[in-house]
């Protein structure tokens, strides 16, 4: 790890002053679980880390009739154990529990989960988000078993690594991004982007901005939500495919549906055709199967990752069955 200087400011205003428009100059430190690995591997070598942990407001969980407000430093452990979240936002609690290492849940934060860098082995090997070796794209001739199956027409082929983003997007959450002068609320659906050139980043947070909180509107009556992740092992691992489902039911019929896939595209992937198919229907296994199939329509596997199409299809089906109480949800 390259040497750097370290600051631990008391306030957001102080923290913002310590940042710069240059990503190599200063980076924000939250839980550190991803950041320190990136620095040890020399993927990045910032000259300064700005620790946010002494900024009180970033640790807060607030809830009322309008919704839930999560400070960026709220840990995944808090998400998975907070009684209000378990009751009103169960999909969020499940998603946090899907990070199946207590150590990572205790350290990892809401903001860090959203801002962690892709796990793509080319990126981690120093070839950048677009996996370029002296201008040549490595992915087309490479081993792509963990790469995107949707939204993968280039030049980016990595998958979004966030555990929380699919369910947050399904819940219509927004991310507050604070800059030196103003703050803005960015819908999770617009928070991530697919880079089109080697100089672009995978989310909209500029180097001199800080993610300060996530705002989740209170689900209306009849809300049902769940996630389903497929991993190689039950213990700590990033999913190969994941799905988040948020539906409203009137009687047993679906009135609104949100279906978002994770780990299959450079951004969380909303499956709108599948959502439309679901509206007006009563969910049973046949419907869930058909909706799962619709969710991966248009998938275009690369070398060695066609298996992910099946995993994503099943993830949607099972998330939908979980959300509607037809498949058990594992407990902590």
């Amino acid at each position: 790890m390259q040497a750097f200087d370290y600051a631990r400011p008391h306030s957001l205003a102080e923290a913002l002053k310590l940042l710069s428009t240059d990503r190599d100059a200063a980076v924000v430190l939250a839980g550190g679980t991803d950041l320190l690995s990136l620095m040890k591997d020399n993927v990045i070598a910032p000259k300064r880390l700005v620790s946010l942990k002494s900024i009180e407001e970033l640790h807060r969980v607030e809830h009322n009739a309008h919704g839930l407000r999560l400070g960026a430093l709220v840990t995944l452990d808090t998400l998975s154990t907070h009684p209000v979240i378990a009751q009103h936002y169960p999909g969020l609690a499940e998603a946090a529990l899907g990070v199946s290492s207590p150590q990572i849940r205790n350290m990892g934060t809401v903001g860090g989960d959203l801002c962690q860098r892709p796990r793509c082995w080319y990126f981690r090997g120093g070839y950048g988000l677009l996996a370029l070796d002296q201008g040549k794209a490595l992915v087309p001739d490479g081993d792509n078993r963990y790469h995107a199956i949707l939204g993968n027409h280039g030049p980016a082929y990595f998958v979004n690594p966030s555990s929380l983003a699919p369910i947050l997007m399904a819940l219509d959450a927004k991310v507050r991004v604070q800059g030196p002068k103003t703050s803005r609320e960015v819908p999770v659906a617009e928070f991530f982007r697919t880079p089109t050139s080697a100089t672009e980043y995978e989310n909209v947070v500029a180097a001199n901005e800080i993610v300060t909180e996530v705002l989740i509107p209170a689900p209306a009556a009849g809300s049902h939500q769940a996630v389903y992740e497929v991993r190689q092992k039950e213990a700590l691992d990033w999913p190969l495919a994941a799905a988040a489902v948020h539906v409203h039911l009137a009687g047993n019929k679906v009135t609104t549906a949100r279906i978002v896939l994770g780990h299959v595209a450079p951004t969380p992937w909303r499956a709108e055709a599948a959502e439309q198919m679901l509206v007006g229907k009563a969910v049973n296994e046949d419907v869930a199967t058909a909706v799962g199939r619709a969710a991966v329509m248009g998938a275009s596997p690369l070398s060695r990752n066609a298996y992910k199409v099946q995993l994503a299809r099943v993830a949607v089906k099972r998330a939908l069955l979980r959300a509607t109480g037809q498949l058990a949800v594992p407990k902590a």
């Binding site: 370290y6 430190l29 620790s51 207590p102």
Partner: peptide
């Protein structure tokens, strides 16, 4: 353990 919660010592800075 950090304040009673289990963490990875390799993933936290000593200064932090």
């Amino acid at each position: 353990l950090l304040d009673g919660k289990v963490i990875y010592g390799c993933s936290m800075l000593a200064i932090d």
